[in-house]
């Protein structure tokens, strides 16, 4: 493990100034669940580590029906899983959080960290994409703020639009639409403590007739260099009647959107094969949830981690 200087920030301003003072070889850390592993493996060797975990302003979460969900970047994954408003209004996100690693890691890992690591397989990312998340960040020089749509945030595996020293501060999810259902399904060989071979989150909003798809957003994980939205697939369903055929066509298009690779977790061929299957399953369940309103969280959690059963 490499040696580094450890610094602790208690405000965003302090964090940014620490960055400026020691730039460029500085890394922000929060839960450090990725950092410690990569540091030990020798992949990340910063000279300075700025721990932002103790910045109160980044720890707040709030929900209102008008403004939607606001997640401080330090919101832990366990909080996402347990948060009543997330479970009620953004169920795919709560289910995704529940499928994330194990409880010890969930208690440390933050939603901001999961976004900034920009892993194609990050478990919260397909759901955040499906809920149209916006990322608020603050630049290192004048503290300038900007907001970026999550689907424009990732530029490659482990890469984002953030400038050096820029700090992700908050994630905003638009207010929930009525008649909406959403679900995340993760395929992995193990039922927990595993990284997704493929992860799919779908959110479906039905029109007042409960048959027409008013809106649909599909987030795909681990099938492209970054988590992606399946826009073409969404286009097939949006504005059209929900039928087994239209759902299947949508899922098939999602499959075509995927451009996975071979790695230790699965082959490209296999990933491509099941992304359609998982998309169809999330859509079917999301439609059910949009119609019936609820699905027990325990059921969602089980669906999320044990895709098949």
């Amino acid at each position: 493990m490499a040696r580094f200087e450890y610094l602790e920030a208690h405000t965003v301003r302090q964090a940014l100034s620490m960055y400026r003072r020691h730039a460029p070889n500085v890394r922000y850390v929060a839960g450090s669940t990725d950092f410690l592993i990569r540091s030990r493996m020798g992949n990340w060797n910063p000279e300075y580590v700025v721990n932002i975990q103790h910045i109160p302003a980044l720890q707040r979460t709030s929900f209102s029906r008008r403004n939607g969900l606001r997640l401080g970047a330090l919101t832990t994954v366990q909080t996402l899983q347990d948060h009543e408003s997330v479970q009620t209004h953004y169920p795919a996100l709560a289910a995704a959080a529940a499928s994330f690693a194990g409880v010890q890691v969930r208690n440390l890992a933050t939603v901001g960290g999961n976004i900034c690591n920009a892993s194609p397989a990050g478990d919260t990312l397909p759901a955040l994409l499906a809920f149209n998340a916006q990322c608020l960040s603050t630049g290192p020089e004048q503290g300038e703020q900007r907001s970026t749509a999550l689907d424009e945030f990732f530029t490659g595996p482990g890469r984002t639009v953030l400038e050096p020293g820029e700090l992700l501060t908050e994630i905003r999810l638009p207010r929930p639409e009525p008649n909406t259902g959403s679900l995340y399904i993760k395929h992995s060989p193990r039922g927990a403590m595993d990284i997704a071979t493929v992860g799919v989150a779908s959110a479906v909003t039905l029109a007042a007739d409960r048959r027409t798809c008013k809106d649909v957003r599909i987030g795909l994980g681990a099938v492209a260099p970054t988590p992606i939205r399946a826009y073409a697939a969404e286009g097939i369903l949006r504005g059209n009647e929900i039928t087994p055929e239209s759902l299947a066509a949508c899922a098939e298009e999602a499959r075509n959107t995927a451009s996975p690779i071979d790695d230790v977790r699965g082959s490209a061929v296999y990933r491509k094969e099941i992304v359609g299957v998982l998309t169809l399953r999330t859509l079917e369940r999301a439609v059910e949830m949009a119609r019936d309103g609820t699905m027990a969280f325990e059921t969602q959690r089980r669906l999320a981690v044990q895709a098949a059963f």
Binding site: P189, R190, A192, M193, I195, V264, V305
Partner: peptide
């Protein structure tokens, strides 16, 4: 689920960790 993935060209162990060498959990 368990398999040591060994590179067919070099013989290197490709998954020397408990996050990639998948031993089952109680849930499984």
């Amino acid at each position: 689920s368990e398999e040591m993935q060994i590179d067919p060209e070099t013989g290197r162990v490709r998954n020397p960790s408990l996050s990639t060498y998948l031993m089952p959990l109680a849930i499984d």
